[in-house]
Design a protein around this nucleic acid. Sequence first.
RNA 1: GCGGAAGUGGCGGAACUGGCAGACGCACUAGAUUCAGGUUCUAGCGCCCGAGAGGGUGUGGGGGUUCAAAUCCCCCCUUCCGCACCA
Length: 812
Amino acid sequence: MSRYPFAETEPRWQKYWEERRTFRAEDFSPRPKFYCLDFFPYPSGSGLHVGHLVGYIATDMLCRYQRMRGFNVLHCTGWDAFGLPAEQYAVRTGVHPAITTAQNIATFRRQMKRIGLSYDWSREVDTTDPDYYRWTQWIFLRLFERGLAYVAEVPVNWCPELGTVLANEEIVDGRSEVGGFEVVRKPMRQWVLKITAYADRLLEDLRLVDWPHSTLEMQKNWIGRSVGADVEFALDGVNAKLRIFTTRPDTLFGATYMVLAPEHPLVDALTDPGRRAEVGAYREAAARKSDLQRAELSKEKTGVPIGAHAINPVNGEKLPVWIADYVLMSYGTGAIMAVPGHDPRDWEFARAFGLPIREVVAGGNVEEAAFVDDVSGTLVNSSTPDRSFSIDGFTPAAAIPKITSWLESRGLGRRSVHYKLRDWLFSRQRYWGEPFPILWVEGEPRAVPEQMLPVRLPETENFRPSGSGESPLANIRGWVETADPETGRPARRETNTMPQWAGSCWYYLRFLDPRNRDTLVDAKLEKYWMPVDLYVGGAEHAVLHLLYARFWHKVLFDIGVVSTPEPFLKLIHQGTLLGEDGQKMSKSRGNVVSPDEMIDAFGADALRLYEMFMGPLEASKPWSAQGVEGITRFLDRVWRLFVDEEGRLRADDSTDAPIEVRRALHRTLRKVTEDFEALKFNTAIAQMMTCVNELQRHDVRSRAMLEPLVLILSPFAPHLCEELWNRLGHEETVAYQPWPAWDESLVAQVMATVAVQVNGKLRSTIELPVGADQETAEAAALADQRVRRHLDGAPIRKIIYLPDKLLNFVVG
RNA sequence: GCGGAAGUGGCGGAACUGGCAGACGCACUAGAUUCAGGUUCUAGCGCCCGAGAGGGUGUGGGGGUUCAAAUCCCCCCUUCCGCACCA
C-alpha cells in the first residue's frame, strides 16, 4: 500500500516556500489585513517540545485559511532572547550569552521551519539585537521624561554568600537555589515604573477587548480597585493624625480598636515607652518573615498593643492602637480601623485578644461571626452622641455615601480609591538585559541623548556578579565611567539592566516595520496593521506580560506612536499538553516529546494535524503517540485517493459523483469553514475524516470532488496538499487559492430522520421528507410496530412534534 | 478562604438555541488480504439482562423544572489554574 512520502515532500515544499517567499506580508495591500500574533518565544537551550507548538500550529492554520479567504496576513515571529538562563550558563561555563542565545535561536528557527509554519521570516526580530533594544531604550526615555520611571529604594533578595541579588524563581524555601545559601531582604536603589498612574485606564479599557473571561477577571483582581473612604483619626495626646482606608465607612461607629502595619512610620512615635521592647520585638519578627511566610502563618492572628489611643471622629471614643502583620503597609494607608462585628479578619483578631465586638449592622449574629452582608443589613447604634447625625435604619449601601459626604463636609475624611496594583520594579542586577540609557551626573539621573542610542551592552568575559549587589556591568570600569555629553562632567552609567518583560512589551509593533532606522514604527504602517486581530499564547502570562504590554501601549498611545488604545483585540490561551503519563511535560519526569522525533517518525503534517485533533484548543490534554499514528493513517488514505500504487495520479476530469458523496463534500466544506471561524480545529478534522471515508467508500476519482478537499485540508497539512495540488497539474502554490464555497442546495437535507418517542423515550426513528407535516409524521410513526407496541392502546394525551427532529407521544 | 475553568465509554473527545448521548480517532475483538509480522479492507465495540428479537440503565453525586435535561435551577463532591489577610 502506498503511503504519503513525507520525508521527501516536506523539505521540498519548505524550500519552495522559502525561495519564493510565499508568506511575505504585503504592506498597504488593499486586501483586508489580518494580524495574527503568537506569544513571543523565549529561545531556551532545550529547544521546542510539542507542547510549545499547539499555539503556533493553531495560528498557522488560521493564517493559511485567512490567506485563502483573501486576507493580507501578517504572521511572523522573533526572539525574546534576553534573560537569566543564558547568563547563568555563562557564569558556569564562560560562554558568552550572545553565543548561547544565537545557538538557541538557530535551533528554534530550524524546528519552526520543520513544522511548516508560514511565518514571514523577513520580519524576524531579536530583543538582544542593538537595533531592536535601541527602541526599547527609546521607550524607556519617554517613560523617564514623563515621570513614569523613577528611582526608589526597594528591598531585593540579597544573597551575601553568592554576592548577588536573586530573582524569586532562584529562591527555594527561602534559600538560594544554587548552593542553598541564606537570602535576606535588602533595600537597593531600583528603577520603578509608575504603572499605577494607568490603573484606571488599564481596568476600564478591558471593556474594549475580546479576551477569555478568566483572564479578564485575573487582570481586574490584579489591579484590585476598591472604593471607600480615607478617614482621619486624631491621636490621644499626640499632635498627629492617623489616616486609615476603609471600604465600609458605614461601620465607623462599630470600630473598637485600630491596627497599624508593623512597618507603619507612626509606630515609633506612638509607642508607649513601657511597651517599646515588646513592640520592637514584634516588628523585628515581622520584618524577618518573608511575604510568603507572613501569608503562610496567617492562620493565627498575631499582634501587640502599642499603648496609644486614637479618637473615633464620629463619637469621640478612645480606641486602643495595635500593630499586627495582618495589616499590610503596601496597601491603602497601612492602617485600619477594626470593626470586628463586620469584618471577619477583625472578628478573629478581636476574639484572639478579647477585644470588644460591637454590632452596628443588624441582620446577623456578631457573637458567632462577622456579619458582612451590605445589602440586607440595617444600620443600628450609628448616631453621633449629640444626635446631629445618624445613619440608623439605612442599608449599608445607602449609608456609605451619606456618611462619606458627612465626613467630607467636616473635614474628617473623603471618598477615596485604592488599588492592589503596585508600581513595577523595572531593574535587574544582571548582565544579559537591555542597559538603561541613563547617566548619573552628580547624583542625578540624566537621559542619554536620543541620538546616542543604543547604549550597547559592553563586551566582557566576566559575567560573575560584582559582589556588591550591582550587576556585572559595574565591573567594567571603562564602560561605567564616562562623561556627560552635554556638560563634560564626569558621569557614571546606570549598571542595572531591564527585566525580560521590557523587550516583549512592544515587539508586536516592531514586526510592522522591523528594519526602520529612524523610528520605532512608521505611523502609516502602524495605522495599517494595528491592532493585533488575534493573539494566542499560554495562560501563564495572563497577568504580567499582558498588563505590562498594555501599559506601554497606552503610554505610546498618549505620545502618538500608536493609534489604538489597546494592542490585542482578541486573545486565546491554548491549553497545556501533558505527557503520556498525564503529568506536566518536564525534563525531570522524562516525559517530554520533541517535535524532531515526531517529524522523523510521522512527518510534520501528521504532527500538526494530531496536535489540533486532540481536543479543543483551550483544553489541556495528554499526548498519545498512538494518536499520531492514527493521523498518519488518515493522511495515507488521503494520499491514496489521489495517487495509485505506482505513484500515478488517480484523479480523472469527471465532474459527476454519487449524490451522497457530493452531499458529504459540501457539508464538509461548510462545517470546516464554520469551524475555522470558531477555531474548532478538532471537529473540522473529524469532519474531513468523515468526508474522506465517504470518498474512499465510493472510490471517487472525480477532480471536481477531490480538488476542494485538497484546498480545505491545505491549512492543516500544507506539505501534503501542496504536493497533491501540484500533481493535479497546478503550477502555483495552494496557499493563495480561493477558499472553496459550498453549494447550499447540496447541504440542505432532503430526508430527515425523525426520532419517535413515547413518554420521552426513544422507540423508533422514521425517515420523512424534510418539512413533513404532523399528520404525515404521526401516520408514519403509528405504522411502526415498535411505536405501537409501546402505545399499547393507551389514550394519547399530548403529541409534541418538531418537524425534521422529533415526535413525542405522551400517553397514560 | 476568594476568583475562574472543568467533570460524558477502556482512552482523547463530539453533541446547534433543552429534542436520537457517545460523531471522529485511539485501544480492543472477530473476519478477509498477506508465506509471516506490519500494512490495508470489512464488521463489532457504554454498562446490565438476553442465543436473538428486544428490554432496562446511563453524561461526578443528590434533588428540582419540563412532554423531553450532558445542556436550565438548587445543594454537594472532585480535579486543574490564578490569588493569598488588599481593610
